[in-house]
Computed example of a mutant assay.
Amino acid sequence: MTMQPLGPGATLGVLGGGQLGAMFTRAALQLGYHVAVWDPDPDAPAHGFASRSFSAAFSDPAAYQDFSRLVSAVTFEWENVPASLCEQLSQICPVRPSAAVLRVIQDRIDQKQFLQAQGLPVPSFSVVTNPAQLAGAVHAFGCAVICKTATAGYDGKGQWPIRQPADIAEAEAALRTMVPTGARWIVESMVDYVRELSVLVVRGANGEHRLYPVVENRHEAGILRMTVAPAVISSEVATQAKDVALRAVEALGGIGVFCVELFQLHGDRLLINEIAPRPHNSGHYTLDACTVSQFEQQVRALCGMPLGEVRLLSPAVMVNLIGHDVEKVASSTGCGDLLAIPGATLHLYGKHRVRPGRKMGHVTFLAESGDEAAGRASQCMKLLAV
């Protein structure tokens, strides 16, 4: 659906009200828009910033009627919102990224097959539709693999690393519990990589695009722990990463903000791990270190406004506050110790329930040099380890 640019005063809809939805909402409000947040969780952080708030189930017809009458354009904060709802809304107003893009991204098998068909580099993979096929798929690779649910998994959930034959039976048992749901799985060879990289790509409806600097991501237990911006890589690798990322988003016909996650292999070859059709945790540093954040870009792309510049004002390192980390910085003493580190900017998400593995906030450290920012982030990690 084509549209004239939407100016301030229009109401934008966002499906999902977690921290990404909250940051989008705040960026939109700052630009003069109203925001309707729809998230079935009444405690979702974005509800507290919304102009209008909907906490009914996504399948609720009355909520759909009210929401659809209110909004002039719709986006989403993560890829597990119902694609069918996005399709329905797209008959009324622009939905960016589109439901068609969302369907490709939501299913890891469809995503990998799409990228492979476009000639884009991805790890070797195999499709499993029955748990009995798992052992054969693992043996066909002849090396360590990771088995993932085709849909719905994130932050290490729905994933089973298989490094030795003994791991197969345990993974197969887990898969059997999911058979009644009609699940499918993808088995990928474990990649011997040097580092994990990501690139934020912003693309407008007219094909205009912006690419943020390539960053390095470091994970713990499948969850992003730290992002270093910019990544300490050669200019050749950075150029290659940006080229691959842009090609992927253009192939999708994507409009909005996308994060393309990459593995840098020995020899500097790159493989696409996954694509997120939305702002990404690894782009949170843009809130403090760039002239225009990834969330403002999401607003601009959704509304058909000119995209912003992506200038990095300062090297930055972002550290996620995961689970009970938040308790260590929420006290006056802990918060004081953290904010005493030069260049620290604290973002707490306002989530009421603390759970292991749940992202509760993040801290961005700015400095004159990347090494200095990394040193400040190390001080933070020491505080969290106490």
Rank of each mutant, 00 (worst) to 15 (best):
D268V: 03
Y154K: 01
A144L: 01
S234Y: 05
Y349I: 07
A173I: 03
A140N: 14
R218V: 09
C143S: 15
L120Q: 13
N320F: 04
D66L: 12
L134D: 07
S378I: 01
A367H: 03
G361T: 07
G254S: 13
L12S: 09
A367G: 06
F263I: 02
I223F: 03
V194K: 07
G9F: 10
Q19N: 12
E236T: 14
P5M: 09
A63T: 12
L252P: 08
K382E: 13
A56E: 15
W38D: 05
S51G: 14
T291G: 15
V74F: 08
A251I: 05
D192Q: 11
V310C: 13
G323Y: 04
E261A: 11
E327C: 11
H324V: 10
P8W: 04
S51L: 00
A276Y: 08
F67D: 11
A135Y: 00
V257K: 08
I186K: 05
A169P: 03
Y212I: 09
G254R: 00
P306L: 04
I272V: 15
D371T: 13
R26H: 07
G17M: 07
R353I: 09
E170L: 02
L346Y: 05
D268K: 06
A117Q: 13
A374C: 14
W78F: 15
A373I: 06
A152M: 11
H139A: 15
V81Y: 12
L246D: 01
H280Y: 01
T181F: 09
V310K: 01
I341C: 03
Q19S: 12
H139M: 12
L252D: 06
V386C: 13
V244Q: 03
A166Q: 14
S72H: 13
C259G: 14
F263A: 07
